[in-house]
Design a protein around this nucleic acid. Sequence first.
DNA 1: CGGGTTCTTGACTATCTTCAACGAAAGTGG
DNA 2: CCACTTTCGTTGAAGATAGTCAAGAACCCG
Lengths: 224, 224
Amino acid sequence: MYVTIPTDGAAAAPIPALINAKPKSPETHVKTGSYLYFEGDDVKWLYLVKSGVLRLTRLLEDGRRQVIAFGYPGDVVGFPAERQHHTDCDVLIDADLQPFSLSCLEGNCSHQETHRQLLQAALREISGMQDHFMMLGRKSAVEKVASFLCVLTDRVGTKVGNYSQVELPMTRTDIADFLGLTTETVCRTLTQMRRDDIIAIDNIQTIIIQRPTVLLDLSLGDEK
Amino acid sequence: MYVTIPTDGAAAAPIPALINAKPKSPETHVKTGSYLYFEGDDVKWLYLVKSGVLRLTRLLEDGRRQVIAFGYPGDVVGFPAERQHHTDCDVLIDADLQPFSLSCLEGNCSHQETHRQLLQAALREISGMQDHFMMLGRKSAVEKVASFLCVLTDRVGTKVGNYSQVELPMTRTDIADFLGLTTETVCRTLTQMRRDDIIAIDNIQTIIIQRPTVLLDLSLGDEK
DNA sequence: CGGGTTCTTGACTATCTTCAACGAAAGTGG
DNA sequence: CCACTTTCGTTGAAGATAGTCAAGAACCCG
């Protein structure tokens, strides 16, 4: 999942046709805290996330970290470069994964349609990352956090009465490392939104969107 | 071209095997200032850059701009999402391009090897963008500018006597919009590097790398 | 040569980070 | 089950980095 240019919520996440592809191997279940792969590992499989949440990270020697993406249902993770993984990937929420062999991405498998769908997933990945560039390079802290909440709500929010609600399975530090901010800035930004009654923080992991249009405006950088 | 984690210069840019692929259409020549495509255009072709420099940009309604990438020889530009372009692309330096039809990327062409190479190019793209995330999200202004110069020098620098030299066909504003900075910050950073005798600015477009190891250290965030 | 763009520099400011402290939550072991 | 430890989240104060605004210099192009 990347922070794409947010919409008014009308556009739901596209469900990849991949989900209908004939799998070549059985579904995998992975537990919170376990690692799927590490940077430098040889790529053997790509994974379509069917449920749960994954976290893709990259580390610098000095300890600085970037969360590259979160893997939500519908996302495909594990695209290789030079046949190797370039991020670590671990599990935030118990997940069901549909593995696809690397050779299938590369076209050396019998099921041609799956190959095509994996390619489409790679192209969606590129496009999503381009949007994310704009967010990392050009948006303010408020815009980043607001955009993040908008995208998450669109993808995995639930309606509760009049309000939308969204779960944050990742820590504040994860969000900060995803958006190019510090933990403190993410905290303060959420607090300010709470004070402005734009959101409510039910428990630490649960955000209620009280004024979605205001949040959307914030994400777009509309003044005040 | 993305700002990947810089190396000591030993690793040259990988020359894609694509360059040997049998083209299905003749080479195209494009002039400085012309546009290859705009955001929203239907994708008909991908282009392998054989010479020259392209610029890929994305605009926000309020005028903020992100330079998504520069297209240098060896790069492939024009990967679609939903069969549409998601950036504008124009020409900074007269370029020779090798077009490949969209259907070839999608596997509907006779030349299977070209299809494979285009897919590999897309995967390299994803990996390069992941590195760029780290740069946009977690690096300081000095580190960004130093990284940028390192990568450019590695890819297209020329040796002149004891020093490396690199041409900057893009404006300072382009560099700023690529790195998530302002023009002024890019300027000041270059000036400081010049004062520290790390680089020399021959003319506005030509940078001479006088102390490459210091520049590399700066790009990695080593203190002082 | 002249007008427009791009680059550079300075002064000032705002945003975000850093450092520090504390409370809440969650995990651990007796 | 409860004390203990550790991690995570929140808030404040102070500071640094990069942005904004403004002006002049350099460069480019017809």
